[in-house]
Amino acid sequence: MKQVTGLGGSPGHSAPSAYRAAVIGTGFMGRVHTHAVRASGGEVVGVAGSSPARAEEFRAAHGLASAHADPLELIHRPDVDVVHVCTPNHLHAPLSLAALAAGKHVVCEKPLATDAETARGLTRAAHEADRVAVVPFVYRFHPMAREARARVASGAVGRIGLAHGGYLQDWLLHPEEDNWRVDPKIGGPTRAFGDIGSHWCDMLEFVTGDRINAVSAQTSRFNEHRGEAGRAVTTEDLVALQFSTEGGAVGTAVISQVSPGRKNQLVLEVSGTEGSLRFDQERPETLWAGGRDHTTIISRDDPGLGPDAARMVTLPVGHPQGYQDCFNALVADTGAAVAGGEPEGLPVFADGLRAAVLAEAVLESARERRWVDLPRTDP
């Protein structure tokens, strides 16, 4: 179980009276983080963007007090408690390190870093600074994902022997569709796996409490060139992954950003000696559970819901909870950790390091066409 002990809220640091956030980045994720901070009772005191014009446009659109041309200026403001890094990937590490050095707590979008060694250094820096340092693996915050985790931990599905599923999107299907994530200088050497495969693997390990210990992967591209200029592409469109776990399970996952009609389908199914569970992020209100003699659909108004799942339920059934609600819950738990608590399941920099190590193993396996063992990443 992931905790935040040693990352914040220690007796050596006084908890702030409010959650005062700086948001760096003015794209989609900047908007999501800004909404989540406000929904959780916090304040976004300022924003920084890739240009003064973009920062000012974001400030005006969201009614913020200030816009900054220089993110370091924003980070060092005395009225900032938590820095939210929502920039392209290559800026995650330097901005997070600057925030930690300034004594701030950090919520850094994934990937934590574009290589494992840098992610390891960030994890160490967060520990040494004794700051809360979070990576938004937000699908953990669906109530039914928490319920799946609780049922596995209780032994309800028995010993898990198989896990499978995938994460499918279609937003980069056509060659004219381009994005900074495609450029390895900005997005890093892995795209589909680093961007969404990391979410699937985090969900697997979070729900099962087990760790992937070896991978065999293939990567592929639908499009060798992208954009109006026909720029050559080196990052992958899709990944087919086999894996084994420390607990003795085997499994497969398919990761794709080029599957027509699939918008954001993260599916995880685990099968044990006593039963199976299936979670689908596009249908997050329910959890499928199966056994030899019955199958059932568990809803988030089930009176037998576990306490951690129940605390994530913020709306009556019939009023769907979704992606933004997950972010709101993550920021609320981040605030609880800043105040000295240890909220269950908060994803921290160590989880971001785990994702970086997995990504490098996947690329190595695909490049060398062999199984690759994963090193332990526990503190």
Rank of each mutant, 00 (worst) to 15 (best):
R278T: 13
T208R: 00
S271G: 02
W171D: 14
A156F: 02
A101Y: 03
P375E: 13
P375A: 13
M1N: 08
V254N: 07
S299P: 00
R283M: 03
Q218S: 13
R191V: 00
Q218E: 11
P16W: 07
V106H: 04
E364W: 02
V250E: 13
P375C: 09
K110W: 05
G8E: 04
V157L: 05
A69I: 00
A361L: 09
A163Q: 03
D195N: 09
A232I: 01
A355P: 10
A93M: 15
A329Q: 12
N213I: 01
G187I: 11
H127T: 08
H92E: 04
D183G: 09
A39R: 13
V82D: 02
T34F: 02
R159H: 11
S259M: 14
V215F: 12
H13C: 10
V357P: 13
V207M: 06
S66T: 10
A116P: 08
K185F: 00
A36D: 12
E282M: 13
A366G: 14
H68R: 02
H33W: 04
R211T: 13
R181F: 07
A356G: 07
G275S: 05
M1P: 05
L91K: 07
L95K: 08
S216C: 12
T273Q: 05
A253W: 01
R231Y: 06
D378E: 15
H84S: 13
L72H: 09
P307C: 14
V357W: 10
V32D: 05
E205Q: 08
F137K: 00
Y167K: 11
L238P: 00
S299C: 08
A253L: 01
G341H: 11
S276T: 12
P316S: 05
V258S: 06
G261M: 06
A69K: 03
L100F: 03
V23S: 09
H13I: 03
